[in-house]
Nucleic acid binder design. Structure first.
Lengths: 186, 186
DNA sequence: CCGAACTTTCAGTAATTTTTGAAATTACTG
DNA sequence: CAGTAATTTCAAAAATTACTGAAAGTTCGG
């Protein structure tokens, strides 16, 4: 648990938040705030804040047990779902704002040659981030099984790509969203 | 620049370090420590420490201009190289230690049923991280052009995968490291 | 609408991290 | 090798972030 607290803090996540999440993740039954307090030895209010933070990231589920007024918290069973949520939230909070800052800087009139170079560099960064985001977006939509398959394949895909180029006639069959009209070739 | 300082601190990177890197990234000519001080308005010693940090991450290159005793710093021209270095370093510093902690926990004798569940969960996490790391490793080896192609392809690869399954006879042709002997099928 | 059970808020304090200036070190020049 | 330029180290100050206990808030059965 401690290790995940540490790790959290290296990735910009509060230590207690990391510990609470690790605990919930590893626990089969949902836990109440008091149980977390007992397990981690931190104050009740700290746990309350950490849970609120985790809720704002949509990383925990709040549920009630019948005949019990306390809040119980748990994490999704599918760990890939956790990864998806994490990616989605980080994107919304950090990536998207960064992209808009970059876009803002790129469209301003350069005041010097140095500015021009800087803009070109920022454009590169912008395009890179956008490419990664689009990739993540698409991959996000796959179900867990397909996702694992895709990752297992790794860079071998490049080989497949060459194959595809050699067999252009099969190209159309590969599209996930078939372009029915030939009006707009890519 | 300020934005990247902020962003850095959300990802576990010191604010000044982020600003220094952003400055170097956007600058065509290599910069000396004093130039960075002038541009960012932070203390000389802070810049020195930040540069040392960046050097320890292998993210900046130190070079000397002829007839000038000062150290000049710059970033790689290829932004994908930066991403590769970043991934490599984070892996070494954070992912690998986490994997060993996980392995350590997984092999201990479970003391209870709850332990058993926890171990199973940790195993899932371990396998997930390992899969991602292996994927990253393979993709890492691609050159920039291939990498971009692969990412552009995104989840369409799943479609290719299906194609491959339909044409098993072509399978061998796809390998990057051809297995010449048929002794060890996968 | 009371009171018990539970949760959240918040101001103050503690802990951690970042930044700095001064001093020490290193590297180079003539 | 003395002198100077450049860099690094380090202890202390400043800033930030995390944590706590006390108090306020909420919910719900009776």
């Amino acid at each position: 648990m401690l290790h995940f607290g540490e790790m959290g803090s290296r990735w910009g996540i509060n230590r207690t938040v990391g510990q609470v999440y690790a605990l919930l993740y590893a626990s089969q039954a949902p836990l109440s705030a008091d149980e977390i307090v007992a397990a981690l030895g931190v104050s009740r209010s700290n746990v309350s804040m950490s849970l609120k933070e985790l809720q704002s990231w949509e990383l925990v589920r709040l549920q009630h047990l019948p005949g019990d007024r306390r809040d119980y918290f748990s994490t999704p069973d599918d760990i890939w779902q956790i990864v998806r949520t994490l990616a989605e939230q980080r994107r919304k909070r950090e990536i998207d704002p960064t992209l808009s800052v970059l876009r803002g800087l790129i469209v301003t009139q350069p005041g010097s040659e140095a500015d021009e170079y800087a803009q070109q560099r920022l454009q590169q960064m912008h395009d890179l981030i956008e490419l990664l985001v689009q990739w993540a977006d698409e991959v996000q939509r796959l179900n867990t099984k397909e996702l694992v398959q895709l990752l297992r394949l790794g860079s071998k895909v490049v080989g497949l790509l060459e194959l595809k180029n050699k067999l252009p006639g099969l190209g159309r069959g590969l599209r996930r969203q078939p372009a029915e009209t030939d009006a707009q070739p890519d």
